[in-house]
């Protein structure tokens, strides 16, 4: 696989010269983005199906066999719907907000290592880039809430910004533990640091188990998913930040939310579950392992939504500031101390 890519690259440079690099990069971006978009579409179906099964009902099953064409039908419906722009909204920001929500969710994929050497941009500060991108996504939400000029949207945006600020900290501290363990900010090196002859025993979720849990909980909060979906809290503030959006604007927020879910799932797999590494020594490492781990976390997202009632706002803040952040702070010290002892075997 890699040899083939290398020969292709060499042939391309010989053939096209300076044009080759941008062209090749665009091809690589498409190879990453298109499956994500397909994944997002079918994640919406998976969500409805899984929620349905957990509620002892079949879920969508009318469009195509087992409802498999449902995402297509939804997409066409949303495309054909009228886009209504509130007359007193800030029109430029109102239209820019969905784009601002979606772009960071996709941009963050640039540094994700899919397999050995399969990264779009092998950045050394990849982790910082990820943190920056995942927190940028909330600007879309804030701007949407503000530009709509609607009280519900505004409340949703306020909640979302406070929530992201609180949970970003816990998330960052959890990642500091990963940094300590891996001694690198390069996501590829983080995965390589988890390689051992004992398969899954070498992965960071064992020494960093509390951080693994904290990271995933913060990730759920970061993506505004149930039980942390206060930003769109439909029982209290209509639809939160996207109250005023219709048609494709709404669809873009939807895409952004699901792309973020996939991103958080992949990140959790990369940081704590050894990315593309195989859990047992006798099976080869492959991108399929990454996909399997990602699917597991995506299932957890949906399982949480089917199980937990929404947090009240003060409970959300309490959990973030008084439970998760102190816990991460303690564990950073524990890990740092642990690493100085011979007991650290990772």
């Amino acid at each position: 696989m890699m040899e083939l890519l290398n020969t292709l690259e060499k042939a391309g440079v010989d053939l096209l010269g300076p044009v080759w690099l941008p062209l090749w990069t665009v091809v690589k971006i498409l190879v990453i983005v298109l499956p994500i978009m397909g994944g997002v579409a079918y994640l919406t179906l998976a969500e409805r199906k899984i929620l349905g099964w957990m509620q002892v009902r079949p879920g969508p099953n009318r469009v195509g066999p087992w409802g498999l064409l449902q995402p297509l039908a939804d997409g066409i419906k949303l495309l054909l719907k009228e886009i209504i722009i509130p007359s007193k909204s800030n029109k430029f920001l109102f239209l820019a907000a969905p784009v601002l929500a979606l772009t960071p969710a996709l941009a963050a994929w640039a540094v994700i290592p899919f397999d050995e050497g399969m990264t779009l941009a092998n950045v050394n500060a990849g982790l910082l880039y990820i943190l920056a991108m995942t927190s940028l996504g909330v600007y879309g939400i804030i701007i949407a809430g503000w530009a709509s000029n609607s009280k519900y949207a505004f409340l949703g945006a306020l909640r979302s910004s406070a929530q992201i600020v609180s949970y970003e900290l816990a998330m960052g501290f959890a990642l500091v533990c990963v940094l300590l363990a891996a001694q690198s900010m390069n996501l590829g090196d983080i995965v390589r640091g988890q390689k051992s002859e004992y398969g899954l025993l070498g992965w960071y979720f064992i020494p960093l188990f509390p951080m693994f849990v904290v990271y995933f909980i913060s990730g759920v909060a970061e993506t505004n998913r149930a039980p942390f979906d206060l930003a769109e809290d439909e029982s209290a503030i209509v639809a939160g930040f996207h109250t005023e959006y219709s048609g494709m604007g709404f669809a873009l927020f939807f895409l952004a939310e699901y792309a973020n879910m996939i991103l958080i799932s992949v990140l959790t797999s990369v940081m704590f579950l050894g990315g593309w590494l195989s859990p047992v020594p006798f099976l080869p490492d492959s991108i399929l392992w990454l996909l399997a781990k990602m699917s597991f976390f995506l299932f957890l997202f949906l399982w949480f939504r089917a199980t937990f009632p929404r947090y009240r706002y003060d409970q959300l803040m309490r959990l973030g500031w008084k439970v998760l952040i102190p816990l991460t702070l303690v564990w950073v010290v524990v890990v740092a101390a642990w690493m100085q002892t011979p007991l650290w075997v990772w």
Partner: peptide, 24 residues
């Protein structure tokens, strides 16, 4: 230890495999 949350998850997890009762 998130025990109550895990209990909740186990309930929905059990129902995930239950036969659906919807009359189509």
């Amino acid at each position: 230890l998130l025990i109550e949350l895990l209990q909740g998850l186990s309930v929905t997890g059990r129902y995930f495999f239950a036969r659906h009762i919807t009359v189509e």
